[in-house]
């Protein structure tokens, strides 16, 4: 496997940034050969949570964030029905996820919450339509998620204390993949309102929409860096899927995986020094960690 290697360095405002455009500095975390998706780093930086399709089951799993670690399925109620797309609470004590209640050849999605040890499961958002991609706000008081309850995929916010639901997006396109900024002030997401999927951000009340990418390719699964200054996302603008990083205003876009395979589902480490992602560049879909010393990109 041959990769183009380039190192970009610079000093902006006294902050050193460094992004290596290759996969030569990777640490391979998993090695079980199963398809994986929806990666999230635990707040203490010790574990990664992801979805795995393994022996016919779609399930949430955790793995220690270290080389060749053992994959451990998360114990949830009804483990034989698909459960996926999990996200840690800020204190790391809870996990919110999508639970798929299979009915014949159809399924009904709902949003569940479970303690990290698998106990205390409860339904947070009952099935009403397509319900997916739940994400805790940093203060733990809200859940942002995607629902089609008003027709097409829109982003909503649930205030956990009073179960109040607020619709944040309203347009004909699909609005997907929400992710909160570290201070809870904004949500970054992907939207097809411009014709195809682009990365946008908005205030936590749905106002102040900013379009951050503008190209003919698909830009999806955006995630804010822990300090909120950068955003990692997936794009197929090179013909394959690669992980890109850009400043929070959409400037300074950099391809950090830069290969011809599928690289998807970026997740920042809590200290912002690494990005985990899922790639099949060595054959099967495995979890990798890559160093990223973040700062403002030119």
């Amino acid at each position: 496997m041959h990769f183009f290697v380039a190192m970009m360095c610079g000093i902006v405002g006294g902050v050193v940034y460094q992004v290596q455009d290759s996969l030569s500095d990777l640490v391979k975390i998993t090695n079980d050969g199963s398809f994986k998706s929806h990666l999230a780093w635990s707040p203490d930086g010790k574990k990664l949570l992801f979805t795995r399709i393994h022996q016919g089951k779609m399930e949430l799993c955790t793995v220690k964030a270290e080389k060749s670690a053992e994959v451990v399925p998360l114990v949830v109620p009804s483990p034989n029905t698909p459960h996926f797309d999990g996200h840690w609470s800020a204190d790391g004590k809870s996990i919110v996820y999508v639970h798929d209640i299979l009915q014949g050849t159809d399924g009904k999605l709902q949003i569940n919450e479970v303690l990290a040890d698998g106990t205390g499961a409860k339904v947070l958002i009952p099935h009403k339509a397509f319900e997916e991609s739940p994400r805790y706000s940093p203060d733990g008081k809200h859940i942002a998620w995607v629902s089609t309850r008003d027709g097409n995929q829109e982003i909503y916010s649930l205030e956990l204390a009073n179960q109040k639901v607020q619709r944040l997006t309203q347009d004909q396109g699909f609005d997907n993949n929400p992710n909160w900024k570290h201070d809870g002030s904004r949500i970054v997401y992907s939207s097809s309102r411009f014709g195809n999927f682009e990365i946008c951000s908005m205030k936590n009340d749905g106002t102040g929409v900013l379009r951050l990418t503008n190209d003919l390719a698909m830009d999806v699964w955006p995630v804010y860096s822990p300090n909120g200054k950068a955003i990692a996302f997936t794009s197929n603008r090179t013909g394959s899927y690669n992980i890109f990083v850009m400043n929070e205003d959409g400037s300074g876009v950099r391809n950090i995986t830069n290969n011809k395979s599928i690289n998807n589902f970026a997740a920042w480490s809590p200290d912002g020094k690494m990005i985990a992602f899922i790639s099949n560049f060595q054959g099967s879909y495995e979890v990798y960690i890559k160093s990223v010393l973040q700062g403002k990109l030119p």
Binding site: G56, P82, G107, E132, V220, Y241
Partner: peptide, 29 residues
């Protein structure tokens, strides 16, 4: 099986729900 989630293989193409996400993440590529 036809269903995307209820299959021991790669999951079928019967995408009554989650069609676009499945297409992006799995079946398309």
């Amino acid at each position: 099986h036809v269903e995307a989630e209820e299959d021991a293989g790669d999951g079928g193409w019967d995408h009554h729900y989650r069609n676009f996400q499945i297409m992006i993440d799995r079946h398309g590529p």
